[in-house]
Design a protein around this nucleic acid. Sequence first.
DNA 1: GTTAATTGTGTACATATAACGCAAATATAA
DNA 2: TTATATTTGCGTTATATGTACACAATTAAC
Lengths: 221, 221
Amino acid sequence: MTVDAVVFGYSRMDGVSLLLIKRKYDPFKGSWAIPGGFVLDDESLEDAVERELQEETGLRINYLEQLYTFGKPERDPRSRIVSVAYFGLVKSTQFQKLRATTDAEEAAWFTFKKLPKLAFDHKKILNVSIERLRGKITYQPIGFELLDKKFPFSDLEHLYGSLLGRPIDRRNFKKKVMSMGILDELDEKAKSTGAGRPGSLFQFNKATYDRLLKNGMHFEI
Amino acid sequence: MTVDAVVFGYSRMDGVSLLLIKRKYDPFKGSWAIPGGFVLDDESLEDAVERELQEETGLRINYLEQLYTFGKPERDPRSRIVSVAYFGLVKSTQFQKLRATTDAEEAAWFTFKKLPKLAFDHKKILNVSIERLRGKITYQPIGFELLDKKFPFSDLEHLYGSLLGRPIDRRNFKKKVMSMGILDELDEKAKSTGAGRPGSLFQFNKATYDRLLKNGMHFEI
DNA sequence: GTTAATTGTGTACATATAACGCAAATATAA
DNA sequence: TTATATTTGCGTTATATGTACACAATTAAC
């Protein structure tokens, strides 16, 4: 009985990225793999995920949700091992932390375009996970879990664009998101990132979202 | 490691119903419970579900999908047992079969309004399952899996009405479903069920649905 | 043949989505 | 300092979709 955690991060530079670790032990020693490990007898599945992630990558995840349970008898060469996969999101601040220290370490971020070969059936787990993320982001506001607490609107726009894999009309997108009333526009301006006009910072208003949700509101992008 | 199967059925009389078994052994001997049992070492999770269902109820399910994995350490009084819950749908023909033979047996159908107290954390599993069924039926045509191969349109209408728990405008509903082109209207008429004008029979066209899906069509009711 | 139950159909209105272009603010290079 | 490239920010119109709503036709039972 193991748990695996498919963890996504986001940065303006690279877009959406995946957290992987390099395995220290056989089987698949030296291969890149999704972080995870065995569940202890007295801990819940969620606790196991958070513990393994902490041990292997030092990261604190921001959002965690059960993805799927993989149980084909032959999926692990050692013996019958059933794995409950979770999928998690981290704030882009955390993303940068790991990034600065792990180039030569055992944990690193990978963009979808530069994925290494993965151990076990982790490629399949990843595919299910990407599909879920893509699907979910259109009807639950989980995109915010990938951004900083305060972010320029363009971050949100680029996140959705890269995740959905299709161009987004900025005007219609903004109109829609703002009309839901779950984004607060702050007085601060983003600090310039090179070229162009700096925009306002925005912040997700979870309290408002929860209230709307309770009243039967239907989020959809 | 166990699997559990939350199986739904539908009949014109009772609407949507849930399949339960009466436990023969401790713990919870004599209680009603969701069918399920231990996974054998060399079988997949899906195989385990189908085997257990066959053993305990004799039913063949028509649609099976993994629901959620429940792993709280204290959920089973015997020891740490993780259970992968599936959710399944059976055709209303099958529904009637079981119904005719099991009144005094160990397996039976229950409407949501007349549910007995359930063993283990099965009430929680059921709740997750109902939520999933409700949510899914609006964006995937799984409702057909509960009906006969051929059915009068009113069956579909009643199924959606009772499942979504809100009245459905027959004209708008029919307009929408028919405009998707995934329902074929047959030449046969339904045989009368007591009173009223008999309507045409309809049939789900899975081939068309798959084709539309591949072309990026978006099912939603 | 009268009644009660059910099926079957169309139109007008409101709402939501999609398409589209240009001006303002900033950094950098000339 | 001026020109250029880059990014933000905004509003209108056309189209599509969803919603509300009423009455005639067919059958079984009485």
